[in-house]
Design a protein around this nucleic acid. Sequence first.
RNA 1: CGGGAUGUAGCGUAGCCCGGUUAUCGCGCCUGGUUUGGGACCAGGAGGUCGCAAGUUCGAAUCUUGCCAUCCCGACCA
Length: 491
Amino acid sequence: MSKELTSRAEDYSQWYNDLVIKGGLADYSAVRGCMVIKPYGFALWENMRDQLDKMFKETGHVNAYFPLFIPKSFLSKEAAHVEGFAKECAVVTHYRLMNDPNGKGIVVDPDAKLEEELIVRPTSETIIWNTYKDWIQSYRDLPLLINQWANVVRWEMRTRLFLRTAEFLWQEGHTAHATQEEAVIEAEKMLDVYAEFVETYMAVPVIKGIKTASERFAGAENTYCIEALMQDGKALQAGTSHFLGQNFAKAFDVQFLNKENKQEYVWATSWGVSTRLIGALIMAHSDDQGLILPPKIAPFQVVIVPIYKGEESKGPIDAKVEEIMASLKALGIRVKYDNNDNSRPGWKFAQYELQGVPVRLAMGLRDMENNVVEIARRDTKEKNSVSMEGIANTVANLLNEIQENMYNKALAFRDDNITPVDNWDDFVKTLDGKGGFIAAHWDGTAETEEKIKELTKATIRCIPLQNKQEEGKCVLSGNPSVQRVLFARAY
RNA sequence: CGGGAUGUAGCGUAGCCCGGUUAUCGCGCCUGGUUUGGGACCAGGAGGUCGCAAGUUCGAAUCUUGCCAUCCCGACCA
């Protein structure tokens, strides 16, 4: 394993790649644009997934699974939807291979052409709504609140580990409701679930808002989002929740009989977060020594490193550590004991810092004699000798403190990087210098939005929910505006 | 798909301009030993279609042409 990590200041992209690869989370694979999520990275994802899944179930949702393949004709039933996704779909055209009759190797059997091509799902709205059509007849069948954990494929031109891979893991919730009001409430509720998860568990502060028409999901009436800020001043869309209106219900003819015995189209939502969240986690917290993972979702919350002095010290140290392990596990703390004799303590210290393990304990003969243990926290890199008395509680309290500290630090950074701006010069200067979110007046037109994007690469990340209404002039056009919106360059 | 760059061992690289024994070095890996409080040391060892193909040449990692792949910057996007 390589020691050298590119520094954040030197090359931010390379720093990020190094964190992912050398931190042991994932790697590029043999397939262009696809990544291998390694066991350590997948353990992180599992912790995130399990917590989200719990929150979905607490809000009344159930899990199901729909096919990977979507008949081509389904995708084209909703006009905006196909428009948005057509350019990035992988297509299955054949179902069989054969030996190359002209030589060596294997070729696609031309006789095995599919009558209708299958699309590898870029998202599952169409196949799901085609199914819902059969599941929904009456208002008594509503609401239908289903989530699926799945992989999807979007054939992106340029990929980045976790942030944008050709295939990614995610969850997608798809709900059907009897009324518009109920569907809107659902979309907003799930946005709240996402925000709570990202802030409480990932320690990444987010801004809840709605997307402008041009940034909206293909086929949605309204897209809610949570936006996070990365350490390089760029924004990252961390999750979205869509109010789909009756668009998919109409496209797939999903009607129900209401209490008045009248046919109505159902109202829909969809919402999703993906492995991209791991990218957000990395870029929000890490430093030049490596990853810094929040205790609530870290694969290991604590690693214990023994400091041996000759063969004879191993037995006693191992025995003492077993004691500590038992007391930590009794409090539900995820702990790893690394008494691998092939690497030395210094190597292990550096390695676990690179991997972002929140707390490290080091136990040697010297500590045992004094009934203490060395405790080091990853977020601040502070090291202390603490008493073995009540060590489990000491660790548990420290884990909570780290979680809180990580959030507060990220929050302070985020808040310092929301800059109100009132004229075009400052807008450009702020964007090129400080970066971050810019709170500026916008005249509400797609033309201005597009123009700003062309000029600066900044997009409207969102119009914050419960946004303060105030009179102002658009930062570009000078036309009247009723509120500030958040601009930023984004991933 | 446009602009730029790069392909040499698992990873990172030297050599290429100016063709010439057995392709350089570091990390990692294997064996044995000594070690262990911040990325250990000694000794020995294994590992290569020099991205692929064709051409020039007595001779190609090196020159020429074509192809392929990857990365970065755009466009696109969770």
